[in-house]
């Protein structure tokens, strides 16, 4: 009885996995097909055609886009960690008037959809001369209410006595923040880092607005460019490019899945 239950459970899980992962498997398979094969509607390539990948790199500066995406995602990730880390520290370890009110103000920004500020932000970035600059693609995302909230939840678990002990040994706020709070909160920093990296990597609308130049354009927009350039016949090339876009984030996700799940649940519920 138990055996039957176990086998059926595994079967269900496997079937669901296949269905869910099917689009990616299909893309992988198509990325190795020649144009004719794609048009014939085969599911598996009869012969491997890795040249689709070379073709993708030749059609658009995919390497450049890849580099841009990495740089932009890393800058935003560290920016968010620093800026929301500092804010979260102030909300937990510093006592100042209006702390609650200010925290509510921070949280309320989570309810303002990004699209609300899109038009004026576009104008602001234009005025700052940040169109086609990394700055325009990164700085507006540094302040994160979600990040501040997530880190604050974690910082609050650090016993107050640690700050008191630091005070008695004459350690100031900055040193305590850098030498104690940040290292102790490593796991939540990693969670927030992974989350920010993934979201930034996958951002679509904002880079579409603020990049007209291939030198700073991230992968997502590069993919759009490639897709619009390609004729109907070259699905293999487009699929190859899509896989190149997906692989880095999938790796990050696979490594950080446990962290992410725990961290996001905590952030959502406490």
């Amino acid at each position: 009885m138990k055996r039957i239950k176990l086998i059926s459970l595994y079967t269900v899980l496997t079937i669901l996995s296949l269905i869910l992962f099917f689009p990616m498997l299909y893309a992988l398979s198509a990325s190795f097909m020649s144009a004719q094969e794609v048009l014939l509607g085969h599911f598996f390539p009869h012969q491997l055609h890795p040249e689709n990948y070379l073709e993708a790199f030749r059609d658009v500066p995919l390497l450049r886009f890849l580099f841009n995406s990495i740089i932009i995602s890393l800058i935003v990730t560290f920016g968010v960690l620093i800026v929301s880390g500092m804010a979260a520290y102030a909300f937990v370890f510093l006592h100042f008037r209006g702390r609650r009110l200010l925290f509510i103000l921070f949280i309320s920004t989570m309810m303002i959809p990004w699209e609300t500020s899109m038009i004026p932000n576009f104008v602001t970035v234009q005025h700052l001369g940040w169109i086609n600059r990394y700055a325009g693609l990164t700085v507006p995302f540094f302040a994160s209410a979600f990040g501040t909230f997530l880190l604050r939840q974690y910082f609050k678990t650090i016993p107050e006595e640690m700050w008191e002990a630091a005070q008695i040994s004459g350690i100031g706020h900055f040193r305590f923040f850098v030498k104690v709070v940040l290292p102790v909160s490593r796991t939540s920093l990693v969670t927030l880092g992974i989350y920010t990296f993934l979201t930034t990597w996958n951002t679509y609308l904002w880079p579409l607005l603020t990049t007209t130049d291939e030198r700073v354009r991230p992968l997502q927009i590069g993919l759009r460019q490639l897709q619009s350039q390609e004729t109907v016949n070259d699905w293999g090339v487009v699929m190859a490019a899509a896989l190149i876009v997906v692989v880095p984030t999938l790796i990050v996700l696979f490594i950080g899945q446990k962290h992410l799940q725990q961290g996001l649940t905590d952030g959502a519920l406490k």
């Binding site: 869910l20 992962f21 689009p23 990616m24 299909y26 893309a27 993934l198 990597w201 996958n202 679509y204 992968l219 997502q220 927009i221 993919l223 759009r224 897709q227 487009v238 699929m239 490019a241 899509a242 896989l243 876009v245 997906v246 984030t249 999938l250 990050v252 996700l253 696979f254």
Partner: peptide, 13 residues
């Protein structure tokens, strides 16, 4: 896994 797949890539697929 779809959390790690961007809008652009999944749309193209």
């Amino acid at each position: 896994s779809s959390m790690g797949i961007s809008v652009a890539a999944s749309s193209v697929v």
